[in-house]
Write a protein that binds this DNA or RNA. Structure first.
Lengths: 338, 338
DNA sequence: TTAGCGTGTTGAAACGCTTCGACGATCGTG
DNA sequence: CACGATCGTCGAAGCGTTTCAACACGCTAA
């Protein structure tokens, strides 16, 4: 492999000049720059990442900690990851992938100066990783909200607003008894905050709109979905509007409703909280509040990059939810069917 | 951050001694080792990854190129990735994630000495990346098979054997007219070899077993699945055994069959080729040939690590398919219903 | 007694880059 | 015309490791 010295020699300049051509940190005359660039081209020169990291204490790599296992819906994770990776490339950075459970990995990449910054997904209310990254010298952005975001930067969908929005949509359509089919019990037990935030918004809006709201946890399996539907319709048979916030269960919820003879979009309005592509790949196109996972990933990278240049105060960004009406929701019992 | 010199000073030894304690490449007496280890502990010392890479030309990072976009089924990708990342950790390596379309990324991480080795997923028959990695100095393992695997190491499920196995299973159960509902047309157009290999096995076995086999491409959408089922049953109404190799479409295929009044597991036998968890999360537990994505990822890492120590000849490993009988397949028309 | 060996440790030379301070040349300004 | 800026370039000092050659020491074998 050619080194920077080889390039310098070939171009008839000093090493530092080559470096400055590459980094643009000092002015270089056009002819010199041209000679250097030609030499780089000819030799196929690439700076050695390690040497660069050593000299500059910048690796141009960011760490992304993602839950590669069960729990959160897989397509959502992939979209986050895709967003992070592509946006990182826009900033000339690569992405080192860590698994959620590899807590020691945080220290490894952090203290070992392997990365310039961190993005962590799927933050729980009382996440053990939060104190670790707070102590690290690298800037960090969390996707999701911990209990106490003090001093940390976070980004997420505004689930509370999403909850309100979903209820308002159903209320406006004339529904007076709505329900949530939500996350699996184990997610709730972990106090993953998005579930709780959605519920808070839901209940707030239900209260102020004067409608009832029933909440069912739901395993992401056919059996779990059936059970949730059955329990719901047994204990709250007057329900005509359902919000589903559980992608894995969504198809099975719809299947179960169909089995029970409820026509979604007519007898029963269903609003999903999920990525748009998931909403569109159900048996009928779902009215949904988009979970813009890829965007969130991109915003996370933007935030982390901002913090990489110059000190920025920590901030929390909650993306406004957008509801798109499709065929799964319709006018309810109390509405004028115009 | 403490450096190796700080540690050496604190332990009263030379720098090199600390290095040898860390690497174990030279014998160190027990007392010295203990002193050094205590100093490391006390100072919270971590070697600087860049410095290490520079001096040793080893980064302890491998690159993983994954299709973060559409096409291949998302859960499968995640499982590959999880397998690669966890196994890499067993070898004390981290994983740098590249997207499939970032072809220039190959050169970047390769020539820039960012990684020790490469794993690439979702290889197409005539993949533009293959010549690039063949030229790289880092060992590479491909997940999937290119047209000409000469000199490259590959690992994949033995899809040809899987095709044969699926047909044999159906034939043994008495079916004489079987069909494949396969990958989306665009996957076939890209000549992703697994689709073609499966079909080859299918046809071979059908021929030697004397049964007919009809093949339908299928989009991974509700509409695509319905269309595939309808076309199939219109052009080959005698079909009683279906092999589905398209996870995205699988639930919709089952739904469409149900709509048409075909009872899967009784009127119609269905064998899926997909990860076990997908097979289990359908409306009924599917007889399936497992796609052991996580295992394949692990094997890929094993192979790449073997090549990292000492020159190994290139090799191709095809994992034997395993069929698990569940409730979606049953005895067909020609069988003795015992 | 001495040559030779293995063990444990050291010093110093890389590894390939960035960046600081310095310096000559060119420029505008009073 | 002299002065200080500004511009373009250079040399050299790091950055934090690994690893090689060398050496001191205590043994064993001849």
């Amino acid at each position: 492999m050619a080194t920077i010295d080889d390039v310098a020699k070939a171009a008839g300049v000093s090493t530092s000049t080559v470096s400055y051509v590459l980094s643009g940190k000092r002015p270089i005359s056009a002819p010199t720059r041209a000679r250097v660039e030609r030499a780089i081209e000819k030799l196929g020169y690439r700076p050695h990442a390690g040497a660069r990291a050593l000299a500059s204490s910048r690796t141009n790599v960011i760490a992304l900690m993602a839950p590669l296992r069960v729990g959160v819906s897989v397509p959502v994770i992939m979209q986050f990851v895709a967003g992070v990776v592509t946006r990182a490339r826009d900033f000339d950075h690569d992405v080192l992938l860590l698994t959620q459970d590899d807590v020691s990995g945080l220290d490894r990449v952090t203290s070992g100066s392997m990365v310039d910054a961190l993005v962590m997904m799927d933050i729980e209310a009382d996440d053990p990783r939060v104190p670790l990254v707070a102590a690290a010298k690298q800037p960090t952005v969390l996707i999701g909200l911990p209990q106490d975001p003090e001093g940390l930067s976070c980004v997420d969908l505004d689930f509370e607003a999403a909850g309100r929005l979903a209820v308002r949509h159903l209320v406006k359509a004339g529904h007076t008894d709505v329900a949530l089919i939500g996350s699996p019990p184990e997610v709730l037990r972990r106090h993953t905050s998005y579930a709780e935030r959605l519920m808070r918004g839901l209940r707030d809006q239900a209260k102020s709109s004067g409608v009832t709201v029933k909440v069912e946890a739901c395993d992401s399996t056919p059996a779990g979905a059936s059970e949730a539907v059955d329990t719901l319709l047994a204990t709250a048979p007057e329900t005509t509007g359902i919000i589903v916030h559980n992608e894995g269960a969504l198809p099975h919820v719809l299947a179960r409703l169909a089995e029970r003879g409820a026509v979604v979009g007519t007898d029963m309005s269903v609003v999903a909280v999920c990525p748009t592509d998931v909403a569109l790949s159900q048996r009928i196109p779902m009215t949904s509040i988009d979970l813009p996972a890829e965007d969130i990933g991109k915003v996370a990278v933007d935030m982390v990059m901002t913090r990489l240049e110059g000190e920025q105060p920590s901030e929390t960004r909650l993306l406004a939810p957008v509801l798109t009406e499709r065929e799964s929701s319709a006018y309810g019992p109390a509405a004028g069917h115009d």
